[in-house]
């Protein structure tokens, strides 16, 4: 992957992810030809698109897991990547799963335990340290997975349909919880979703992506006068944005 230091002019000072004319093919299949996007520090940005539009490939590129064919990718900060499946290791307890990134980084056992003790209450999992993943509900598993992502990297979160497998009630709770976490840790979040409501509710900006060969069809700024995101879903502006987004599908 081509990575480059970000330009330091004033307009780009706060940019933590920048993709310029990125292209990627798998064999004969052209996934992207010319993708450009950016994410600023502290933003929540959604990548909205239907299935098979190469969204996960985009995240794999940002996370540095696969190389690109052409273009430039610049990422400033540590990246944590959370996928739709919680990917908790079934043979490890909640504490061991959550503490795994620290263990891999070579932290001392006492430091890992201390950090887990400090962070578990933040995601409402205190008292569940010694439970195994199969003993947790879907929401609890996602929160444990989220905390593990946080232990991997605190600056940039890539959430690939992270709540896609949950029922709508748990999903709503997890979305609210994500906003709380975002406020607490002040990190940058990039979401992949195919849920328009979720994108409007959570995001500051939305990129609408087409099917492969994927391109950015539209960048939409989610501008609400009322900054309280909890009231967004009932706002008439949500309907307007939804209508605008639906034009591209």
């Amino acid at each position: 992957m081509l990575t480059m230091p970000l330009q330091t002019n004033s307009s780009l000072n706060d940019t933590v992810i920048k993709l310029e004319h990125v292209g990627k093919t798998f064999g004969e299949m052209v996934v992207f030809e010319d993708i450009c996007l950016h994410v600023n520090r502290g933003e929540i940005v959604s990548i909205l698109g239907s299935s098979g539009s190469g969204k996960s490939t985009l995240f794999n590129i940002i996370a540095g897991l696969i190389p690109i064919d052409h273009g430039k990718v610049a990422v400033r900060g540590t990246v944590g990547y959370m996928q739709q499946k919680d990917l908790l290791l079934p043979w490890k307890t909640v504490a061991s799963n959550v503490g795994l990134p620290l263990k891999l980084k070579g932290f001392a056992k006492e430091d890992i335990e201390k950090k887990i003790k400090e962070y578990l209450p933040l995601v409402g999992l205190e008292g569940n340290e010694d439970k195994y993943p199969f003993q947790l509900s879907g929401g609890m598993r996602q929160r444990a997975s989220f905390l593990r992502t946080l232990m991997t990297a605190e600056e940039i979160f890539l959430l690939d349909e992270a709540f896609g497998s949950l029922d709508s009630i748990t999903r709503g709770q997890m979305q609210k919880w994500l906003l709380d976490m975002k406020n607490k840790f002040d990190n940058t979040v990039v979401l992949i979703t195919h849920d328009i409501d979720e994108a409007i509710y959570l995001s500051d900006r939305i990129y609408i992506i087409s099917k492969i060969p994927a391109e950015i069809k539209k960048e939409i700024k989610v501008d609400f006068h009322n900054e309280d995101k909890n009231k967004r879903l009932l706002s008439p502006r949500t309907l307007e944005l939804k209508q605008e987004i639906l034009k591209y599908f």
């Binding site: 794999n60 996370a63 990246v79 990547y81 996928q83 499946k85 891999l104």
Partner: peptide
């Protein structure tokens, strides 16, 4: 996906 997870870590 598990292998990717470990690579991100």
């Amino acid at each position: 996906d598990y292998l990717r997870l470990f690579k991100t870590m």
